[in-house]
Design a protein around this nucleic acid. Structure first.
Lengths: 147, 147
DNA sequence: TCGAATAGACATGCTGCTTGACTATATGGT
DNA sequence: ACCATATAGTCAAGCAGCATGTCTATTCGA
Protein backbone atom coordinates (compact mmCIF):
# COMPACT_ATOMS: atom_id res chain seq x y z
CA UNK A 1 0.00 0.00 0.00
CA UNK A 2 1.49 3.30 -1.10
CA UNK A 3 -0.02 5.26 1.78
CA UNK A 4 1.63 2.95 4.30
CA UNK A 5 5.00 3.61 2.76
CA UNK A 6 4.56 7.37 2.73
CA UNK A 7 3.36 7.26 6.28
CA UNK A 8 6.44 5.28 7.32
CA UNK A 9 8.68 7.68 5.45
CA UNK A 10 7.27 10.75 7.18
CA UNK A 11 7.40 8.91 10.49
CA UNK A 12 11.13 8.35 10.08
CA UNK A 13 11.67 12.01 9.22
CA UNK A 14 9.69 13.10 12.25
CA UNK A 15 11.68 10.78 14.50
CA UNK A 16 14.92 12.12 13.06
CA UNK A 17 13.72 15.66 13.67
CA UNK A 18 12.76 14.88 17.23
CA UNK A 19 16.08 13.17 17.80
CA UNK A 20 18.26 15.91 16.33
CA UNK A 21 16.37 18.55 18.26
CA UNK A 22 16.55 16.49 21.46
CA UNK A 23 20.28 16.00 21.15
CA UNK A 24 20.87 19.67 20.43
CA UNK A 25 18.81 20.67 23.43
CA UNK A 26 20.44 18.17 25.77
CA UNK A 27 23.93 19.12 24.66
CA UNK A 28 23.16 22.81 25.11
CA UNK A 29 21.80 22.18 28.58
CA UNK A 30 25.10 20.58 29.58
CA UNK A 31 26.90 23.74 28.57
CA UNK A 32 28.11 22.90 25.06
CA UNK A 33 26.60 25.80 23.19
CA UNK A 34 29.15 26.11 20.38
CA UNK A 35 28.45 22.84 18.60
CA UNK A 36 26.03 21.94 15.83
CA UNK A 37 24.73 18.59 14.73
CA UNK A 38 27.42 18.18 12.10
CA UNK A 39 29.98 18.35 14.89
CA UNK A 40 28.11 15.54 16.59
CA UNK A 41 28.39 13.42 13.47
CA UNK A 42 32.10 14.17 13.42
CA UNK A 43 32.45 13.27 17.11
CA UNK A 44 30.58 10.01 16.57
CA UNK A 45 33.11 9.06 13.94
CA UNK A 46 36.16 10.22 15.91
CA UNK A 47 35.02 8.37 19.03
CA UNK A 48 35.16 5.13 17.06
CA UNK A 49 38.69 5.61 15.83
CA UNK A 50 41.18 8.39 15.15
CA UNK A 51 40.55 9.76 11.70
CA UNK A 52 42.26 12.09 9.24
CA UNK A 53 40.65 15.22 7.91
CA UNK A 54 40.11 13.70 4.47
CA UNK A 55 38.49 10.57 5.91
CA UNK A 56 36.25 12.75 8.03
CA UNK A 57 35.31 14.82 4.99
CA UNK A 58 34.19 11.71 3.13
CA UNK A 59 32.21 10.56 6.14
CA UNK A 60 30.43 13.88 6.50
CA UNK A 61 29.81 14.32 2.80
CA UNK A 62 31.44 17.73 2.55
CA UNK A 63 34.71 18.84 0.98
CA UNK A 64 38.04 18.50 2.73
CA UNK A 65 38.34 22.29 2.71
CA UNK A 66 35.10 22.70 4.58
CA UNK A 67 36.09 19.92 6.93
CA UNK A 68 39.47 21.50 7.55
CA UNK A 69 37.83 24.76 8.53
CA UNK A 70 35.43 22.95 10.85
CA UNK A 71 38.29 21.00 12.43
CA UNK A 72 40.21 24.22 13.09
CA UNK A 73 37.13 25.63 14.79
CA UNK A 74 36.75 22.54 16.97
CA UNK A 75 40.42 22.56 17.92
CA UNK A 76 40.21 26.24 18.91
CA UNK A 77 37.23 25.41 21.10
CA UNK A 78 39.06 22.56 22.75
CA UNK A 79 37.11 19.59 21.39
CA UNK A 80 39.87 18.06 19.28
CA UNK A 81 43.60 17.86 18.94
CA UNK A 82 45.80 16.93 16.04
CA UNK A 83 48.42 14.26 16.47
CA UNK A 84 50.83 13.26 13.72
CA UNK A 85 49.94 10.13 11.82
CA UNK A 86 52.84 7.72 12.45
CA UNK A 87 52.27 5.98 9.14
CA UNK A 88 51.86 9.04 6.91
CA UNK A 89 53.87 12.22 7.26
CA UNK A 90 51.33 14.31 5.35
CA UNK A 91 48.37 13.42 7.51
CA UNK A 92 47.44 14.12 11.10
CA UNK A 93 45.04 12.09 13.15
CA UNK A 94 42.21 13.93 14.82
CA UNK A 95 41.63 12.88 18.42
CA UNK A 96 38.84 13.84 20.80
CA UNK A 97 39.95 15.72 23.92
CA UNK A 98 38.32 15.17 27.31
CA UNK A 99 35.96 17.98 26.44
CA UNK A 100 35.21 16.29 23.14
CA UNK A 101 34.44 13.03 24.89
CA UNK A 102 32.29 14.85 27.42
CA UNK A 103 30.28 16.47 24.66
CA UNK A 104 29.88 13.13 22.88
CA UNK A 105 28.65 11.65 26.14
CA UNK A 106 26.12 14.42 26.55
CA UNK A 107 24.87 13.77 23.03
CA UNK A 108 24.50 10.06 23.69
CA UNK A 109 22.59 10.66 26.90
CA UNK A 110 20.27 13.10 25.15
CA UNK A 111 19.73 10.62 22.31
CA UNK A 112 18.94 7.88 24.81
CA UNK A 113 16.47 10.18 26.54
CA UNK A 114 14.69 10.84 23.25
CA UNK A 115 14.53 7.13 22.44
CA UNK A 116 13.12 6.57 25.91
CA UNK A 117 10.32 8.97 25.02
CA UNK A 118 9.60 6.89 21.94
CA UNK A 119 9.42 3.76 24.06
CA UNK A 120 6.78 5.37 26.25
CA UNK A 121 4.49 5.57 23.24
CA UNK A 122 4.24 1.82 22.75
CA UNK A 123 3.38 -1.05 25.08
CA UNK A 124 6.16 -2.44 27.24
CA UNK A 125 6.17 -5.79 25.48
CA UNK A 126 6.84 -4.19 22.10
CA UNK A 127 9.85 -2.11 23.06
CA UNK A 128 12.37 -4.83 22.38
CA UNK A 129 10.71 -5.24 18.99
CA UNK A 130 11.28 -1.58 18.27
CA UNK A 131 15.03 -1.84 18.74
CA UNK A 132 15.27 -5.06 16.77
CA UNK A 133 13.18 -3.68 13.96
CA UNK A 134 15.24 -0.50 13.63
CA UNK A 135 18.47 -2.46 13.73
CA UNK A 136 17.18 -4.84 11.12
CA UNK A 137 15.99 -2.30 8.55
CA UNK A 138 18.91 0.11 8.79
CA UNK A 139 22.23 -0.63 7.21
CA UNK A 140 25.71 0.79 7.66
CA UNK A 141 26.28 4.02 5.84
CA UNK A 142 26.39 7.72 6.29
CA UNK A 143 24.67 9.10 9.36
CA UNK A 144 24.15 12.57 7.96
CA UNK A 145 21.69 13.47 5.22
CA UNK A 146 23.04 15.58 2.38
CA UNK A 147 20.58 18.37 2.87
CA UNK B 1 19.99 -0.81 28.01
CA UNK B 2 21.81 2.33 26.94
CA UNK B 3 23.49 0.69 23.96
CA UNK B 4 20.13 -0.35 22.57
CA UNK B 5 18.91 3.21 22.67
CA UNK B 6 22.00 4.60 20.97
CA UNK B 7 21.77 1.90 18.35
CA UNK B 8 18.14 2.79 17.69
CA UNK B 9 19.00 6.47 17.51
CA UNK B 10 21.71 5.95 14.92
CA UNK B 11 19.43 3.58 13.03
CA UNK B 12 16.83 6.32 12.70
CA UNK B 13 19.45 8.79 11.49
CA UNK B 14 20.72 6.31 8.93
CA UNK B 15 17.19 5.64 7.70
CA UNK B 16 16.53 9.37 7.41
CA UNK B 17 19.77 9.79 5.47
CA UNK B 18 18.88 6.97 3.12
CA UNK B 19 15.40 8.40 2.65
CA UNK B 20 16.47 11.98 1.99
CA UNK B 21 19.10 10.81 -0.46
CA UNK B 22 16.64 8.46 -2.16
CA UNK B 23 14.05 11.17 -2.57
CA UNK B 24 16.59 13.61 -3.95
CA UNK B 25 17.83 11.06 -6.43
CA UNK B 26 14.37 10.00 -7.55
CA UNK B 27 13.19 13.58 -7.94
CA UNK B 28 16.29 14.45 -9.96
CA UNK B 29 15.75 11.44 -12.20
CA UNK B 30 12.27 12.68 -13.06
CA UNK B 31 13.75 15.95 -14.23
CA UNK B 32 13.31 18.18 -11.21
CA UNK B 33 16.89 19.28 -10.74
CA UNK B 34 16.27 22.69 -9.17
CA UNK B 35 14.75 21.56 -5.89
CA UNK B 36 16.31 20.68 -2.54
CA UNK B 37 14.89 18.76 0.36
CA UNK B 38 13.64 21.88 2.10
CA UNK B 39 11.44 22.52 -0.94
CA UNK B 40 10.05 19.03 -0.50
CA UNK B 41 9.14 19.81 3.10
CA UNK B 42 7.42 22.96 1.86
CA UNK B 43 5.56 21.02 -0.84
CA UNK B 44 4.42 18.44 1.68
CA UNK B 45 2.88 21.20 3.75
CA UNK B 46 1.34 23.03 0.78
CA UNK B 47 -0.15 19.84 -0.60
CA UNK B 48 -2.15 19.48 2.61
CA UNK B 49 -3.64 22.94 2.54
CA UNK B 50 -2.89 26.38 1.08
CA UNK B 51 -0.56 28.20 3.41
CA UNK B 52 0.78 31.70 3.87
CA UNK B 53 4.46 32.55 3.80
CA UNK B 54 4.60 33.16 7.54
CA UNK B 55 2.87 29.86 8.33
CA UNK B 56 5.27 28.10 6.01
CA UNK B 57 8.21 29.79 7.73
CA UNK B 58 7.09 28.48 11.10
CA UNK B 59 6.65 25.02 9.66
CA UNK B 60 10.11 24.98 8.13
CA UNK B 61 11.80 26.51 11.13
CA UNK B 62 13.43 29.38 9.23
CA UNK B 63 12.68 33.10 9.17
CA UNK B 64 9.89 34.59 7.08
CA UNK B 65 12.52 36.50 5.09
CA UNK B 66 14.31 33.32 4.17
CA UNK B 67 11.01 31.68 3.36
CA UNK B 68 9.94 34.62 1.22
CA UNK B 69 13.11 34.35 -0.83
CA UNK B 70 12.60 30.61 -1.24
CA UNK B 71 8.98 31.13 -2.28
CA UNK B 72 10.01 33.67 -4.91
CA UNK B 73 12.49 31.14 -6.26
CA UNK B 74 9.86 28.42 -6.43
CA UNK B 75 7.36 30.73 -8.14
CA UNK B 76 9.96 31.70 -10.75
CA UNK B 77 10.61 28.03 -11.42
CA UNK B 78 6.90 27.32 -11.81
CA UNK B 79 6.27 25.21 -8.72
CA UNK B 80 3.99 27.65 -6.89
CA UNK B 81 1.65 30.53 -7.42
CA UNK B 82 0.39 33.20 -5.09
CA UNK B 83 -3.33 33.77 -4.72
CA UNK B 84 -4.79 36.49 -2.53
CA UNK B 85 -6.08 35.41 0.85
CA UNK B 86 -9.81 36.24 0.81
CA UNK B 87 -9.84 36.72 4.57
CA UNK B 88 -6.69 38.84 4.94
CA UNK B 89 -5.60 41.57 2.58
CA UNK B 90 -2.00 41.45 3.75
CA UNK B 91 -1.49 37.77 3.13
CA UNK B 92 -1.37 35.59 0.05
CA UNK B 93 -1.96 31.89 -0.05
CA UNK B 94 0.68 29.75 -1.67
CA UNK B 95 -0.70 27.09 -3.99
CA UNK B 96 1.09 24.26 -5.77
CA UNK B 97 0.98 24.39 -9.56
CA UNK B 98 0.69 21.27 -11.71
CA UNK B 99 4.47 21.18 -11.81
CA UNK B 100 4.54 21.49 -8.04
CA UNK B 101 2.13 18.58 -7.68
CA UNK B 102 4.13 16.55 -10.19
CA UNK B 103 7.30 17.12 -8.19
CA UNK B 104 5.55 16.20 -4.96
CA UNK B 105 4.35 13.01 -6.63
CA UNK B 106 7.87 12.17 -7.73
CA UNK B 107 9.08 12.67 -4.17
CA UNK B 108 6.37 10.40 -2.79
CA UNK B 109 7.17 7.68 -5.30
CA UNK B 110 10.87 7.90 -4.49
CA UNK B 111 10.10 7.77 -0.77
CA UNK B 112 7.91 4.71 -1.28
CA UNK B 113 10.70 3.05 -3.27
CA UNK B 114 13.13 3.63 -0.41
CA UNK B 115 10.69 2.24 2.13
CA UNK B 116 10.26 -0.76 -0.15
CA UNK B 117 14.00 -1.33 0.12
CA UNK B 118 13.68 -1.30 3.91
CA UNK B 119 10.94 -3.89 3.70
CA UNK B 120 13.23 -6.20 1.76
CA UNK B 121 15.55 -6.35 4.74
CA UNK B 122 13.06 -7.99 7.05
CA UNK B 123 10.86 -11.08 6.75
CA UNK B 124 7.58 -10.70 4.91
CA UNK B 125 5.54 -11.34 8.03
CA UNK B 126 7.15 -8.47 9.90
CA UNK B 127 6.58 -5.75 7.32
CA UNK B 128 3.17 -4.77 8.59
CA UNK B 129 4.73 -4.54 12.04
CA UNK B 130 7.29 -2.09 10.70
CA UNK B 131 4.65 0.34 9.51
CA UNK B 132 2.62 0.03 12.67
CA UNK B 133 5.65 0.49 14.85
CA UNK B 134 6.81 3.61 13.05
CA UNK B 135 3.32 5.08 13.10
CA UNK B 136 3.01 4.33 16.80
CA UNK B 137 6.28 5.87 17.97
CA UNK B 138 6.21 9.01 15.84
CA UNK B 139 4.01 11.94 16.70
CA UNK B 140 2.81 14.94 14.75
CA UNK B 141 5.33 17.75 14.54
CA UNK B 142 7.92 19.27 12.31
CA UNK B 143 9.24 17.11 9.52
CA UNK B 144 12.51 18.94 9.13
CA UNK B 145 15.39 18.84 11.59
CA UNK B 146 16.83 22.18 12.57
CA UNK B 147 20.31 21.36 11.49
C1' DT C 1 64.32 7.88 -9.03
C1' DC C 2 60.88 10.02 -10.96
C1' DG C 3 55.96 10.81 -12.08
C1' DA C 4 51.40 10.50 -10.32
C1' DA C 5 48.50 10.53 -6.37
C1' DT C 6 47.20 12.16 -1.87
C1' DA C 7 46.87 15.15 2.72
C1' DG C 8 46.14 19.44 3.87
C1' DA C 9 46.32 24.65 3.86
C1' DC C 10 45.25 29.21 1.82
C1' DA C 11 42.49 32.36 -0.95
C1' DT C 12 38.22 33.45 -2.99
C1' DG C 13 33.37 33.26 -4.04
C1' DC C 14 28.67 32.05 -3.57
C1' DT C 15 24.25 30.57 -1.62
C1' DG C 16 21.05 30.26 1.91
C1' DC C 17 20.04 31.93 5.68
C1' DT C 18 20.04 35.80 9.43
C1' DT C 19 19.03 40.49 11.49
C1' DG C 20 17.14 44.97 10.95
C1' DA C 21 14.15 48.32 9.00
C1' DC C 22 10.21 49.45 6.54
C1' DT C 23 5.16 49.54 4.33
C1' DA C 24 0.54 47.99 4.16
C1' DT C 25 -3.24 45.87 6.19
C1' DA C 26 -5.76 44.13 10.22
C1' DT C 27 -7.52 44.09 14.97
C1' DG C 28 -8.97 45.51 19.50
C1' DG C 29 -9.84 49.08 22.92
C1' DT C 30 -11.86 53.47 23.94
C1' DA D 1 -14.71 56.73 14.42
C1' DC D 2 -10.02 56.71 15.88
C1' DC D 3 -5.77 55.37 17.34
C1' DA D 4 -2.29 51.97 19.22
C1' DT D 5 -0.60 47.72 18.49
C1' DA D 6 0.06 43.49 16.05
C1' DT D 7 0.80 40.96 11.88
C1' DA D 8 2.01 39.72 6.60
C1' DG D 9 5.28 40.58 3.60
C1' DT D 10 9.29 42.97 1.23
C1' DC D 11 13.87 45.21 0.75
C1' DA D 12 18.68 45.70 2.12
C1' DA D 13 22.82 44.22 4.25
C1' DG D 14 25.66 40.85 6.53
C1' DC D 15 27.42 36.43 7.71
C1' DA D 16 28.51 31.45 8.18
C1' DG D 17 29.17 27.36 5.95
C1' DC D 18 30.07 25.47 2.58
C1' DA D 19 32.30 24.97 -2.66
C1' DT D 20 36.01 25.77 -6.20
C1' DG D 21 40.64 26.55 -7.47
C1' DT D 22 45.49 26.54 -6.52
C1' DC D 23 49.43 25.49 -4.05
C1' DT D 24 53.10 22.74 -1.11
C1' DA D 25 54.73 18.70 1.15
C1' DT D 26 54.76 13.94 1.39
C1' DT D 27 53.90 9.22 -0.23
C1' DC D 28 53.56 5.49 -3.33
C1' DG D 29 54.05 2.71 -7.48
C1' DA D 30 56.61 1.55 -11.65
Amino acid sequence: MAEDKWSSATAVLRLATELIDGIQEGVNEEGFDDVRSIHGFAFARLSESPTTTVQLARHLGITKQGTSEMVTHLIERGYLTRSPDPTDGRASLLVLTDRGHACTGAARRAAAATVAVWEQRIPVDRRQDLHEMLDAVSIAGRLRPTW
